[in-house]
Lab assay of single mutants.
Amino acid sequence: GSPLAQQIKNIHSFIHQAKAAGRMDEVRTLQENLHQLMHEYFQQ
């Protein structure tokens, strides 16, 4: 897949890990990143 698709997959797993660790501030930051990446992805 594209590097962007790979990045989106990575962030999904980072979010999963951050949630499991209870780091909600990190989850929020990652979700904002994910949102931006998704936006770029669909602009392609």
Rank of each mutant, 00 (worst) to 15 (best):
38 M>Y: 13
43 Q>H: 10
14 F>I: 14
24 M>D: 08
37 L>E: 00
21 A>M: 07
7 Q>A: 12
4 L>D: 02
38 M>S: 02
7 Q>E: 08
35 H>W: 10
13 S>F: 12
26 E>A: 05
6 Q>P: 03
15 I>C: 10
8 I>A: 01
24 M>N: 06
25 D>M: 05
10 N>R: 12
14 F>T: 13
6 Q>K: 07
23 R>K: 10
35 H>N: 08
18 A>S: 03
33 N>W: 14
23 R>F: 05
15 I>Q: 00
17 Q>L: 12
14 F>P: 01
21 A>V: 04
32 E>F: 05
34 L>N: 00
41 Y>S: 03
38 M>H: 03
1 G>D: 14
18 A>F: 03
23 R>S: 04
6 Q>S: 05
35 H>K: 13
41 Y>R: 03
2 S>I: 14
17 Q>W: 07
27 V>N: 01
8 I>P: 00
27 V>P: 00
21 A>R: 07
40 E>Y: 05
4 L>W: 03
3 P>G: 14
44 Q>A: 11
11 I>N: 02
34 L>A: 02
17 Q>M: 12
3 P>Y: 12
27 V>E: 01
29 T>Y: 08
26 E>R: 06
40 E>P: 01
1 G>E: 13
13 S>G: 12
5 A>N: 07
31 Q>L: 14
14 F>L: 15
16 H>T: 14
1 G>I: 13
20 A>R: 10
25 D>F: 03
15 I>A: 00
24 M>Y: 12
41 Y>T: 02
18 A>Q: 03
41 Y>G: 03
30 L>Q: 02
12 H>F: 13
16 H>S: 14
11 I>M: 10
36 Q>P: 01
20 A>H: 06
24 M>G: 04
15 I>Y: 02
42 F>P: 03
33 N>H: 15
30 L>F: 04
5 A>S: 09
36 Q>G: 05
1 G>R: 11
31 Q>D: 03
38 M>E: 04
12 H>K: 14
34 L>H: 01
36 Q>H: 10
9 K>V: 06
39 H>F: 08
23 R>P: 01
34 L>R: 00
18 A>I: 04
15 I>L: 08
39 H>N: 10
30 L>D: 00
34 L>D: 00
33 N>Q: 15
36 Q>T: 09
14 F>V: 12
1 G>Q: 12
10 N>I: 13
19 K>N: 05
43 Q>R: 10
18 A>H: 03
30 L>R: 01
16 H>P: 02
32 E>P: 01
6 Q>G: 04
4 L>A: 04
41 Y>W: 13
21 A>L: 10
34 L>C: 07
7 Q>K: 09
29 T>A: 12
5 A>H: 11
30 L>T: 00
12 H>M: 15
2 S>Q: 12
11 I>D: 01
5 A>D: 09
17 Q>V: 09
11 I>S: 01
13 S>C: 15
1 G>V: 12
22 G>T: 02
34 L>M: 05
12 H>N: 10
3 P>D: 15
13 S>D: 15
37 L>H: 01
10 N>Y: 05
4 L>S: 03
41 Y>N: 04
31 Q>A: 09
31 Q>F: 10
6 Q>H: 04
24 M>W: 15
16 H>N: 14
23 R>W: 04
14 F>Y: 11
42 F>N: 07
26 E>P: 01
24 M>K: 05
13 S>E: 15
27 V>F: 04
26 E>I: 13
10 N>Q: 14
39 H>G: 05
16 H>V: 13
2 S>R: 06
19 K>V: 09
21 A>Y: 01
25 D>Y: 02
16 H>G: 10
4 L>M: 06
25 D>S: 07
6 Q>T: 07
31 Q>H: 08
25 D>V: 05
39 H>E: 12
12 H>D: 04
20 A>N: 07
34 L>F: 03
